[in-house]
Each structure stands twice: as C-alpha cells, then as structure tokens.
C-alpha cells in the first residue's frame, strides 16, 4: 500500500533538485553544545571523586584494610543467605496468597486479604521483634486439635532462634508484598488467555503455570527486582535481634576502632556491589520474558467495543 512508487506515475513531476533533497544525503552539524555539556559534566563528577579520594577523613586505607575482613565476610554471607531464603519463601508463599486472593472462594480470598493487610501493614522492625520474643507470649507451641487433645508440643525458646525469627519475619512480610506484586502481574494478562486455556480443557493449575504466569512475568520481574534490593537492605534490621548481618558486623568493628565512616563505606560498597550484580541479572530475566515481543510486524486490528463479547452478539 505505502511502498515507494516504482515506475512512472502519471502527473508526477520530478525536478533535478529532488535528488539533492533526498534526506539520506543530509549531514549533521558538529554538536558543539553537546560536547561542551559532556565536558563540563564529566569535569564536575571527576572533580568530586578526586576531592573524596584525597580527603583523609574518608579513611580509604581503612576501607581497603577491612573490605575483606573475616567479620565483614561473615556478615555479608549472613545478609546474602537471609535475602535468598526470605526471598524464595516470600515469592513461593506470595504466589499462593495472590492466587487465593483472586479466587472465587470467599474463604480463601478473605483469609489472604487478612494476611496481606497484617503483614504488609505492621512495621517490619516490630514484626521481627515480635517473632524473636514469641516465647514471652507463648512459652510453648503445641500442635493440637482445637479444644481437643495435643499431638505435639515444643518449647518456643528452642524453636525460635535469632535465625528462625529473622527468616519467619522477613519471609512473611515479603510474602505479603510479593502477593500484591504477583496479583498485579496476573491481572495484567488479557482475560481471553485464561478463557482460552479453559476452553482447551486445561486445569486451572496448568493454565496458571503454562499460560498466565509466563505472561505475567513481564509485569512481575521489575518490581520483584526492587523487592530483592529492598530485602538486602532490610536484612540490616535483623541486627536488632542479634543476627550478625553485614551492617551489624561493620558496627561491631567501628564500636571497637571508632572508624565509623570508613566502616560504613565498606558496608555501602558491598551493598552497591550486590545490587549492581542483581541489576544485571534482572536485565537478563526481563529480556527472557519479553523475547516474544521483539520483531513485531502486524498488530491485530481490534474490533470495535466489547472485545470479549460477553453480552455482545
């Protein structure tokens, strides 16, 4: 339809000048303004780094000395380990809560709504302290039939260590936040997709796994990357329940040496390093889930209103 006209067309006058006016021949003027802007910007940034580098108050030699300190390494592994465990549990539980929240079943959707309301609403710091001090509320935890016999019983203090309190606290909070992210992703998928899966006789579980979730991932991955980065930093909260994470370990060093700024810089650089690695990973995952969007040719023409035709026709 809109392909360039080949052959002679009646009534079209071609001027000799037309060849010179072909936009392919245009040359760009040298961008003096852009070059100037780049130069000034780079000079300011470079100068800032230089000032920081030569400032003795930053204590760079101390930063270098403690960067791979065993205490710091141990704290780093605790932070990373907690992040991974809490994130995996949070996503798994969050998926279940999200599906339950969207279910037709009133019981499931109300219970998951209550779960999200509480664990998203209460401050994470308070949740962690509560889990850690669970033994003061419930000295023993028992598995029993309501109002009936007890099947098993444990001492709360042996069950809840700083580690378990940290994992439970972080995971439940994460699950509530992830549930909403996953729900948003599931809602972003065209309703026709679930209907088609249904029409082909797929079970709901299979439709979710094969059709809906892969399409929802596009909307789920970016905010989940955010969550992961927040989670790495949120693990620093566990220092209040005596978990020796990265921040706790640098604090323990500067409490001894009084080199507060250099030690905090050690922590900051480690956090930035981890988040940089995660950003690269997130980019790769996003590319994987958007591969079917590339190289688009034709976008189907939508037929007027009522695309799913519920009350239509």
């Amino acid at each position: 339809m809109s392909s360039p006209a080949t052959g002679e067309q009646a009534g079209v006058v071609r001027l000799p000048e037309d060849a010179l006016r072909d936009v392919r021949l245009a040359h760009a003027p040298f961008p003096f303004d852009r070059v100037a802007l780049w130069t000034v910007t780079l000079a300011i940034i470079g100068n800032f780094f230089y000032i920081c580098a030569i400032n003795p108050n930053f204590g760079w030699p101390v930063v270098a000395q403690y960067f791979f300190d065993p205490t710091v390494m141990k704290g780093l592994s605790v932070s990373l380990g907690l992040t991974v465990v809490a994130m995996v549990l949070g996503i798994a539980l969050g998926l279940i809560v999200a599906v339950a929240r969207m279910s037709q079943d009133r019981l499931a959707s109300s219970l998951s709504g209550l779960f999200i309301w509480f664990f998203r609403g209460a401050p994470l710091l308070v949740q962690l302290i509560f889990w850690y001090n669970l033994s003061t509320l419930f000295p023993r935890i028992s598995l029993s039939i309501p109002f009936g016999p007890t099947l098993a019983s444990w001492d709360t203090n042996t069950l809840i260590t700083p580690l378990t309190a940290a994992i439970v606290g972080l995971s439940l909070n994460e699950a509530a936040l992830m549930a909403e992210i996953i729900r948003g992703g599931l809602l972003s998928v065209d309703k026709g997709q679930a209907e088609t899966a249904e029409a082909f006789g797929m079970t709901r579980a299979r439709a979710l796994r094969r059709i809906i979730i892969p399409q929802a991932m596009k909307a789920i991955v970016p905010p989940t990357g955010n969550q992961l980065i927040s989670m790495i930093k949120a693990t620093s909260l566990v220092s209040v329940i005596a978990m020796a994470d990265l921040l706790y370990s640098v604090q323990s060093i500067y409490n001894r040496t009084f080199e507060v700024i250099p030690m905090l810089l050690v922590a900051v650089f480690w956090y930035l390093l981890i988040t940089s690695v995660l950003n690269v990973g997130q980019g790769a995952i996003e590319r994987h889930y958007t591969r079917s969007d590339r190289g688009s040719l034709a976008v189907p023409k939508k037929a007027g209103a009522g695309t799913t035709g519920k009350g239509e026709a």
């Binding site: 209907e195 088609t196 029409a199 399409q215 079917s292 799913t308």
Partner: peptide, 14 residues
C-alpha cells in the same frame, strides 16, 4: 470441543 475466538487469543509467549 475446539474453539476459535474473535480475538484469536493465541498464547503470545509461544
């Protein structure tokens, strides 16, 4: 029962 929809409803990620 096979069904063909107005909006095709192909699975876009496949």
């Amino acid at each position: 029962i096979g069904m063909v929809f107005q909006q095709f409803n192909l699975f876009p990620h496949m």
